[in-house]
Structures are given as structure tokens and as C-alpha cells.
């Protein structure tokens, strides 16, 4: 091995070590534990696919998966629509634009825990700001986080709070669209709707695609909001018992780490599968300038 290659490898070593110790090893270990009866306190005992078999017949597992899929669909859709709308609005030339951009980005800078506590107050059934507003228009609002019908939608609604991130990325994409495309469209008599559908959106599909993937991965792992706002049991009536919350309970309250590792691997395969499907289908709707 020549010395230049050795030097290069040495420089890469910190990354290799970091990846190996903090990613690869835990993943492989989790795979082995998922096939074991493992309580952390005792060495794992290999039990084959028993954990997976039990998982598939566990109705709380399905309930948590269902909750998570509903949440992820709602939250991703809502935050995509919000961020896209905001980005389009903030892409116009208005005085004080830098101010508006900052304001809409600000909520993303707030820690999730602080944001969750703030939203808890907003969702208060008696005297909360949301219900007080609803009352002025003659609607008696529910106790959002205590009513099993409303708790999940309430958490989904919160996703607009984090739309700032996607908004900034979309905005950058919007500003990359060459002006001459709009000029050509105008010459052809396109109105704003045509320009949006036929120029703007196709041109930013790579950015939308990126946000979509990041959004789905993030929302499938939703944990903090629910943990803070509705507790680790996923109350009311398990309506906010999300996948990772269930995993946390099984791992750290019940000390059933093997079972929890099986859940983690299923989530990993699920996310991997979804990303692959999106990647495969992206050729049909994502435009890359070549």
C-alpha cells in the first residue's frame, strides 16, 4: 500500500470508526437481539423468529402502526401544502420580505419540547386559545388532547409548526427557476395558474421529492410530541400511541429489548421500502435538468 493511500485512509478513519461503532454495530447487534430474548440485564438467548411472530399477532403493534401511518400521511401532506404555499407567497417581491421569511422560519428553531408544551396550552379544552377563538364563531371546541377522536388530528395539525424547514428549501428551489421560462410562458398567454402548474411545480419537483422523503422518514419516527403531550401510554385510549412510543415502552419499561429490536428492524425495513418505492417512481414525476 503506498503511503498516500495510507494517509488518506487514516484521515477517513474517524468516520469509519464513528460509523462502525455508532451505526453499523448497533444495527447488526439489534438484528441479532431481535432474534433473541434479551432483557439488557441478562445475556441474549437466541429464540429464532419468536419476537416477529408475536409482533404480528399483537394488536397493540398494529394499532401503533396504524396510528403512525395515519399521522405520517396527515402530517406530511399538511406540512408539504403549508410549506409550499408559504414558499410561493414568500417568493413574490414584497417590501420587508426578509422579515416575513424569518418569521415563518422561526418556529422551527424552537425545541420540540418547548413547542409541545406551548401547543398543550393552546389545545386546552377550557380557556385554550384555539377553543376561545372557536367560541367567538359559535363553535364549542373539544378537549383536544383528552378526546380520543381529536388527539391524533391535534398532533397532525401541529405539523404546520415545523413547515419552516421545508419552506426554506422550497424557496431556494423556486429562486433557481430561470426567469426566461416564465417569460416564454407569458408570451404564450399563460395565466398564473398555468405558470404554477406547468413551470413552477415541475421545476421544483426535485426539491419536493427531497422534502417528501425527509418528511416521511421523520414523521414515521414521531415520538417527542406525543410523549410530552399525551404521555407514554399514548392516551387517550391509545389514540396517540405511535410506533416509536410503543417501542420505547417495550424496551425501557418492560425490559423486552429483543422485542423492541424486532420493532426497530421492521420500522427500518418499512422506511427503506417506502424510500425505494419513491425512488423507483420518482423518474415519472421528478424533473432533473439535464
Amino acid at each position: 500500500m503506498n503511503s498516500r493511500r495510507l494517509t488518506g485512509l487514516l484521515f477517513c478513519l474517524p468516520w469509519f470508526i464513528g460509523f462502525g461503532v455508532f451505526m453499523l454495530y448497533p444495527m447488526v447487534a439489534a438484528l441479532y437481539y431481535s432474534l433473541s430474548d434479551y432483557s439488557v440485564l441478562l445475556p441474549p438467548v437466541f429464540i429464532g423468529f419468536d419476537n416477529y411472530i408475536e409482533l404480528f399477532s399483537d394488536d397493540i403493534f398494529w394499532k401503533s402502526l396504524n396510528n403512525t401511518v395515519v399521522y405520517a400521511s396527515g402530517a406530511v401532506l399538511l406540512s408539504m401544502l403549508t410549506s409550499l404555499t408559504l414558499a410561493l407567497l414568500l417568493n413574490s417581491r414584497v417590501r420587508g420580505m426578509a422579515f416575513y421569511r424569518t418569521v415563518f422560519f422561526l418556529p422551527t428553531l424552537m425545541p420540540v419540547v418547548a413547542g409541545s408544551i406551548l401547543w398543550m396550552w393552546m389545545y386546552t379544552g377550557d380557556g385554550g386559545i384555539i377553543n376561545t377563538f372557536l367560541e367567538t364563531v359559535g363553535i364549542t371546541g373539544p378537549a383536544w388532547l383528552a378526546d380520543p377522536r381529536f388527539a391524533k388530528p391535534a398532533l397532525i395539525l401541529m405539523a404546520v409548526w415545523g413547515a419552516g424547514h421545508a419552506m426554506v428549501i422550497l424557496l431556494a428551489g423556486l429562486q433557481d427557476i430561470p426567469e426566461h421560462l416564465y417569460e416564454a410562458a407569458l408570451l404564450d398567454g399563460a395565466n398564473w395558474w398555468h405558470r404554477l402548474i406547468h413551470v413552477t411545480l415541475p421545476m421544483i419537483t426535485p426539491v419536493i421529492y427531497f422534502n417528501l422523503i425527509i418528511g416521511i422518514i421523520g414523521s414515521l419516527q414521531v415520538f417527542t410530541q406525543a410523549f410530552i403531550m399525551t404521555g407514554s401510554t399514548g392516551s387517550p385510549e391509545r389514540s396517540t400511541l405511535f410506533y416509536v412510543l410503543r417501542l420505547y415502552n417495550v424496551a425501557f419499561q418492560d425490559l423486552r429489548m429483543g422485542y423492541a429490536c424486532a420493532m426497530a428492524w421492521i420500522l427500518f425495513i418499512l422506511v427503506l421500502g417506502l424510500t425505494m418505492i419513491m425512488h423507483r417512481t420518482s423518474a415519472r414525476w421528478v424533473n432533473y435538468e439535464r
Binding site: 389545545y123 386546552t124 379544552g125 377550557d126 380557556g127 385554550g128 373539544p142 378537549a143 383536544w144 388532547l145 383528552a146 378526546d147
Partner: peptide, 10 residues
């Protein structure tokens, strides 16, 4: 039920 939920959430 709903009266209690609203009351407790406050």
C-alpha cells in the same frame, strides 16, 4: 364525559 374532559384539560 366531554364536560369532564374540558374541565380537566384546564
Amino acid at each position: 364525559v366531554q364536560n369532564v374532559q374540558r374541565f380537566v384539560s384546564g
